[in-house]
Design a protein around this nucleic acid. Structure first.
Lengths: 389, 389
DNA sequence: AGAAGTTAGTTCGAGAATCGAAATAACTTG
DNA sequence: CAAGTTATTTCGATTCTCGAACTAACTTCT
């Protein structure tokens, strides 16, 4: 039986080393060798590469464990910037990451996607460059990541359906960014990137999770074995157009009737409230009302959570994830999360719920930024991501 | 940027070679090198290993393409047996595969799982040994695979829930088989193995599929990137306990009410027909009635397909597979499949259905056997499976 | 028929990446 | 300060692959 051990890809180990140093799970060469189960000599090679690359530096010595002191390794935080943005309907969230993958600063700015890609991207790019310049680091922008609201063709970085973003389809967003920055660029759907970011903030590379972004729209991202799952046509994670009995004949933007989004999305809530004579214009308005304990809005939000939970319970039964994360505006309400949680626990098989966690995303509004940075770093440093913690 | 090409695991290539020879996609060393995009010398090495292992032999020469004739390679079909079984409630299907992965013969025999693991496994093992002995090949049984109806702990090979199989949980099926045969043994859920078998009979290693086994019970298996996806607790693929409005308050074995299985499974149909005074005892009886064009049974089967389609449409929307396969007794009715298909196409987003195929499994009742054999061969020959066709 | 060209397959050395053992370095402890 | 311990580097040995050169076996053209 010719069965030589399948040599792990080198990029992968490099990334694992960075993570261990970042998390403090292993801070010296020998510790890394032990944790990774790899020969000390191999670690030494990788560390040499990383120091030459300017990502890792030695930082004095640690405490002895009875023999020679370990030479403590530390990540250099000034090797360059990864600039990322999460684009919403009315504003964009911009973030700056170090090459070692930590989020340094964020900023929100108003944008209007309906003006088309050129002006929107111009605004974002300028803000990114300003932020990078202001940070004063000697090195420049090594990579750019962008999260877009809606289905994205990852190859070109384009929005796939005309939908709410006129002029965007076919523009070639990824190419535009690469030209503009002269650096690696990555574009993906916002729910996908949020899922990727949140997953790796909480779970390991052998686990599975679903992250639902519930705001004005509802989208979700799927992580299988620590990697983004996009499905056959890149449309995986659609929960918003699942039929819900309670939605009746309410028409949906997709052409069908009775979709979840008509009654459980922020946009749906706005419409429902308006019908009852409550003056609201945006999802934020609705959440404000709930914050002020408005009984109608509160009931409605809770009900929306129950409907979402109904849809998610069948998805969770099927997919059996380790964790279900909720993010987006509506997930900021504990009430909403509680409603989802109770409905999912009620509707799922015990074998599926026994270890299931249902929680608000810890990375909150930065989830998408983290995911985008991760994809960019994957491109820069190697391929698939490392063994966790 | 230290980015050496991630050397593909050697087992993988070996398997790819076998598949190409088996499918006739490449029958000589040079052709293999071309198709696999690998150096001729490397192919020569692999072929040498395989001939020494007794899996491949040379079989004369082929036609010249203007120069030296290629030496045609062929798989040896007498290198040993892989014996597999798919265990149902009342009968087991047994199959014999060659080491090269092709199914040679099958046989069904009655068993009674409710008598417990020891007698059931005894019956199956004896039948396997008899079949292998009768085939007269010089070599023995190199591996054994078993598909069980119900959730399985893959490590031990045990059924997880008491459910319909008393005395089975905690028995250690895998260990029993390995002791009995002195060979590699693999045990998994029947829907999982059917999914694996059907997927690789039709799709490639970078595609995704769902296979639903609709018979007396309803189960499903999920294939992500050509590999079996089991979920966090090994319970992934549960669609049977999804709530369906039409099921009303019908109590289910899981303790909840309104589960799909109460109105769409074979068992559910039997119960519903019995209530209407139609004398049926098994799923087979129901299908017989449909075959005889019994109006009540036919309508009921079609309705069951619609309900299954309703549940699957939300699953398909979420998972966005390349293909949805249907297997099990009820999938033998084209009526049933048509009902599922139309409901899914109706309820799913166009982005998801544009390339989606919904079909009866081509491997039919042998799907589970193929999947089991594949898992066993993975264990014997290497790890993950090869690049297709 | 024989030379020229083409295709098939093997041999052999270089290169990449790992590991393990031994050497070296730097401590702690008795 | 010697003995034991832990950290790190050095240096083959190993395991894979590839590519180039070489041999083998044809077809075809003249």
């Amino acid at each position: 039986m010719p069965m030589p051990l399948p040599t792990p890809p080198p990029g992968r180990q490099t990334q694992a080393i960075i993570e261990h140093i970042a998390h403090g799970t292993a801070t010296s060469r020998s510790e890394l060798a032990r944790v990774l189960g790899v020969a000390p000599s191999t670690v030494a090679l990788r560390i040499n590469e990383l120091t030459e690359l300017g990502v890792v530096v030695e930082d004095g010595t640690g405490v002895s464990r009875g023999g020679r002191k370990p030479r403590v390794l530390r990540l250099r935080e000034d090797g360059g910037h990864i600039m990322v943005a999460d684009l919403g309907g009315h504003h964009a969230r911009i973030g700056r990451f170090t090459l070692t993958g930590s989020l340094v600063e964020t900023r929100s700015l108003p944008v209007r996607v309906e003006e088309g890609p050129e002006p929107t991207l111009r605004t974002i790019a300028d803000a990114m460059k300003a932020m990078a310049a202001a940070s004063g680091g000697p090195a420049g922008i090594k990579g750019v990541g962008l999260a877009l609201p809606g289905p994205v063709d990852v190859a070109t970085g384009d929005v796939k359906l005309p939908s709410r973003m006129p002029d965007w389809p076919g523009f070639g967003v990824r190419a535009w960014l690469e030209r503009e920055f002269g650096a690696v660029a990555v574009v993906d759907n916002d729910a996908n990137l949020s899922a990727l970011g949140e997953h790796h903030a909480q779970l390991g590379p052998d686990q599975h999770s679903i992250t639902v972004k519930a705001g004005t729209a509802i989208g979700s991202g799927i992580i299988v074995r620590g990697e983004l799952y996009r499905g056959a046509t890149g449309a995986a994670g659609d929960v918003t157009h699942t039929r819900v009995a309670a939605a009746g004949d309410e028409p949906c933007s997709c052409g069908n009737t009775g979709c979840l989004e008509t009654i459980a999305s922020g946009a749906g809530l706005v419409r429902q409230l308006a019908r009852q004579g409550v003056a609201v214009e945006s999802t934020a308005d609705v959440l404000d009302l709930v914050h002020k304990a408005d009984p109608i809005a509160t009931t409605m939000l809770r009900t929306a959570g129950t409907y979402l939970g109904e849809v998610l319970s069948s998805v969770v039964n099927f997919f059996n994830p380790d964790c279900l994360f909720l993010t987006g505006g509506m997930a900021s309400s504990e009430l909403f999360i509680a409603a989802v949680r109770s409905r999912v626990y009620e509707g799922c098989h015990p074998l599926v719920t026994q270890n299931l966690r249902i929680e608000a995303a810890r990375t909150g509004p930065d989830a998408g930024l983290h995911g985008a940075a991760r994809l960019v770093l994957d491109q820069i440093l190697g391929q698939s991501r490392p063994a966790g913690h």
